[in-house]
Design a protein around this nucleic acid. Structure first.
Lengths: 302, 302
DNA sequence: CGGAATCATAGATTTTTTTTATATCTTTGG
DNA sequence: CCAAAGATATAAAAAAAATCTATGATTCCG
């Protein structure tokens, strides 16, 4: 029984096919088949039911796969702990980013980061906050950039910066003439929100309902802030956008961005990692890259 | 980085020498040296300081060794879980036995057990109870036969049988004429006890002091019950012995064995295992073997 | 039924591991 | 201080293992 055999087994378990798994492992299908066969022979149990499509684990296979995941995790931890010890910025980093951050932040720090740390393989996935917490928990993600504040206990957050909220108002809206908008004045019927599951939606709703008890039902919802702004334009509505989205508003519409009265309205952008985690040197480097480009950018558009 | 390399590393860490480790691993010394070198190369760190005698781990080595132990534990667990699943009675079993049980019980069930389960490699170690708990905790022991009653939380006990206490009295002792001895009547000055650290000593002391507040200082102590009995004979003293020791008392001295009044005076013989343990099928078989031979023997000498 | 897809098998090839033999270095006893 | 013994490293040969190419068997689907 070798680590490679276990890795092949997990690959098949993950993608449900010998040939697909062999590609993932960068070997030919017979090679992978043979190793799985050897493993089954050594353990004296059939692990995979090849008659099913997709290939499925037998009862014994389920047990072995579960334990193999643990073993491989412990095994990988050895390399990570050494990299950590050497303070080396290298290795694979799987980074989750929420949809209301990723389009406005990634392009700014990713190129710099990769250039400064050529040994890091960065893999970014756009995910909603709840999925990020799950993924961090089951170790299918190393870190994530989220709007912080309510992490589970097993996740630790490191603060990056504050991201203020602004109002984006259609010229046809009653509030367009104001340069400063009080949350109490917002007509919830005209406020456009992201669809359910986005944490920015919840944060904005909380902001509004905290100021006055109001019916939180909304007239329209969408998955992207850009869409929301376009709908606001054409319907005489408004929406709330974060500061990091401002540079993407065309010059001709900059007038529609209004301050929100009282500066407390903002979200905290943080890096979230599992508490028991090791890749802290990479994450430290990532944090540095982000901070750097954010402070550079702030001089530009504030 | 392979499992074998990690095993070689652990072998060196355990015995402090490349050549000795190579024997433990059943390979030649150059083979082991080469694999350690490959491992060091891959990790990019020197793990062992060869200039020291015995060979000692570097700081990085300490970290890797610690994590490698965990990884190999998880790795071995895979095989064990499969054996478990198959209900197979096979594999290595490291069994601890306390000194006041081992000479009276082992010879009775071990031959039968090994014959009935030829695939089991049994390794018995005589250890004191406190060492057994430690060894179970750090996974250097699979199970143990002890006098139960006060296990730590992470250890589970399975009861085997009760082992009554008897008095062994010198003919010169005042109590020799009695056929039934009350604990209250024992002269603690004449009571011979095992040396400190044996749980049987503590159990007997507890038994005596529970019945009456008494000075527990003793006139003589020894590490073996047989010695204790011989000293009792020659000094007019007495001692307390467990039922399982009775068959080893020569016929000529059987008269010196006396019942203790009130039958509650006994110890519980149990099998102790770590709670998170898997080799339960082997341990189940072991339990069965012991129970069998005990019930057979009870017909003989009770 | 024929073609495509999937997994198994066989033999050749390459890679890796182990062994044997030997060198280097350190320690120890005379 | 030197020689012998002990321990690890190195190099080349041998053995073992993993991989690849090619092909066969089976199943699925149109």
């Amino acid at each position: 029984m070798t680590i490679i055999q276990l890795e092949y087994l997990l690959a098949v378990a993950n993608c449900g096919s010998f040939s697909a798994a062999s590609e993932l492992c960068f070997v030919t299908q017979p090679s992978l088949s043979m190793q799985i066969k050897n493993l089954e022979e050594e353990l004296g149990v059939i692990l995979l039911d090849r008659s099913k499509k997709p290939v499925i684990a037998t009862d014994a296979g389920e047990v072995v796969i579960k334990n193999a995941r643990e073993a491989i995790k412990a095994y990988n931890y050895i390399k990570e702990s050494v990299a950590e010890l050497k303070g080396e910025i290298a290795g694979h980093l799987r980074l989750g980013v929420i949809p209301t951050i990723s389009p406005y932040l990634l392009h700014r720090f990713v190129p710099d980061f990769l250039e400064q740390h050529p040994k890091v393989e960065l893999e970014v996935r756009e995910m909603k906050t709840s999925d990020i917490f799950k993924a961090l928990g089951r170790d299918s993600l190393d870190a994530a950039i989220i709007a912080g504040g309510m992490c589970p206990d097993d996740i630790a957050e490191q603060e990056l910066f504050n991201d203020r909220f602004y109002a984006y108002v259609s010229p046809m809206n009653d509030l367009y003439e104001r340069s400063n908008i009080r949350i109490e004045d917002i007509d919830m019927k005209k406020l456009l929100l992201l669809s359910d599951g986005h944490c920015l939606r919840d944060q904005i709703l909380e902001l509004c309902t905290a100021r006055r008890a109001v019916n939180p039902s909304c007239s329209f919802e969408s998955g992207s802030l850009d869409t929301l702004m376009r709908i606001a334009d054409s319907t005489g509505g408004m929406t709330i956008i974060p500061e990091m989205a401002l540079p993407f508003i065309p010059e001709s519409r900059k007038e529609q961005v209004k301050n929100l009265a009282k500066g407390v309205a903002s979200r905290k952008i943080t890096i979230a990692v599992r508490r028991t985690y090791v890749k802290s040197s990479i994450i430290g480097a990532l944090k540095e890259s982000i901070m750097e480009c954010v402070s550079a950018a702030q001089n530009m558009y504030v």
